[in-house]
Amino acid sequence: MHYLVTGHTGFKGAWLTLLLLSRGHQVSGVATKEPPEGGMFKRAELADELVHDFRVDIRDTEGTAAAVSAAAPDVVVHMAAQPLVRESYRKPRDTYETNVIGTLNVLEAVAATPSVRAHVVVTTDKVYRNNNQEAGYAETDPLGGNDPYSASKAMADLLVQSWVRSFPGAPTAIARAGNVIGGGDVSRDRLLPDLTGAFASGRAPRLRFPHAVRPWQHVLDCLNGYLTLVDRLLAGSGQGQWNFGPGPDSFVEVGEVATLAAELWGGAARWELDGTNQPHEANLLALDNSKTQRELGWRGRLSFHDAVAWTIDWEKRVHAGADVRRVSQEQIAAFESRSAAVLLPI
């Protein structure tokens, strides 16, 4: 099977590329620019493994169409985005154009490429209108978004829903997921990269919102969910919207995550509170996975503790000089050998 992954040079994209290769698939990718020097895509030397490695900004309508057409994939997983809340305050126009117009360009390109048999568009848990409810948000809950990032992804989500209803084409589904963690993330303003970067350099990271609750999920659990959805689309069902989040034990305060990470890192690792004024971020975000568990049979394989421990283990081993590709492949093999955890509905 030939997969085209947009955003393949990013954190999730690199892990998805390696996971697909480990399962025997061919992979092509579309990304805006060269991968970051410290990112997993470059350090794991994934470029040579690709059928096509396109450098195209998804805001470029003609360029996106040409890349998808040239790749002629069986499956498209659209993950390319401006994915950071704080960056969306600094660059709102870029955020809206990338996340909304870019998604439209991918939809049009897929519609014009007859080889595509399944299309998964990845949005986020932040598409939901957040009222800090303790119960997880279900796929039927209303969408919204206070910050530019959340609003742009809600717009993209609605765009895909409208597109599917309006135009015939490849079976298409929306995957909504929350915070994912794992080794090799070098994105700005994300907790685990900030923590491990500081610990490795002997600094104490400063937390903006230590009491904010997030659903912490290992990247491999999330990506396995996307591929479970692809399999269902290829089998003739699975269209619609789907939540892929961790179990209830993974709804943990930022401060608790930082404390556990410091303990696992060892030595003098610790964190401090950042008391300066910060832009708005949602305090509580949780997903209701019951539909996904019931209808797709998908379950998480890693607990909250495991997700953090695997992330810290990856970073510590690589920081000590271990080969990025080998460490990542070992974690994928360990993940694949695990049976799905039995999780209660949220």
Score class of each variant (00 low, 15 high):
L284C: 09
Q293G: 12
Y137R: 12
L229F: 08
A334K: 11
L229Y: 08
H2Y: 09
M155E: 10
E87T: 04
E134R: 10
E295Y: 09
D48M: 00
Q239H: 11
L192Y: 02
E139Y: 05
E330H: 07
L233G: 08
A111Y: 01
F251C: 01
H305V: 15
L18R: 11
R270V: 00
L104P: 00
A212F: 10
L343D: 09
V252P: 00
L195P: 00
A340N: 03
V76N: 05
A70K: 11
A261L: 02
S22K: 10
W15E: 03
E336Q: 14
P248V: 15
P248C: 14
Q239A: 13
V120L: 04
R326C: 04
V318M: 05
R188W: 09
E253V: 09
P73Q: 07
L287F: 07
T61V: 12
L107W: 04
D274Y: 06
G39S: 14
K153Y: 06
P148D: 05
L284V: 14
R190D: 02
L207S: 06
R190L: 07
F167S: 11
M79R: 03
A341W: 06
P36H: 10
D194F: 01
V68E: 07
P345E: 06
E281Q: 10
T32R: 13
S187C: 09
F54H: 15
T17C: 09
I174V: 15
Y149Q: 07
A261C: 02
P142W: 09
V230C: 08
A135T: 15
R23E: 15
H218S: 07
H280N: 03
K91D: 14
D185K: 01
Q161L: 10
P168F: 08
T124Y: 05
L260K: 01
D48N: 08
C222S: 13
N179K: 03
V308E: 02
T123H: 11
A173W: 03
E34T: 13
L302N: 03
T32K: 14
G255Y: 03
R326V: 14
H52K: 13
T276V: 09
G29L: 10
W271H: 13
G240H: 09
D323G: 07
E330W: 07
A262N: 03
Q82F: 05
L21T: 04
V27G: 01
G238C: 13
E139M: 05
A67L: 08
G145V: 03
N146T: 15
A111N: 09
V308T: 01
H119A: 04
N99A: 06
D53G: 07
W298N: 05
V318S: 03
N146H: 11
T172A: 04
V106T: 07
V100W: 05
T259R: 13
P215F: 01
D313G: 05
E45Y: 11
S150H: 00
Y226W: 14
S250E: 04
P35F: 06
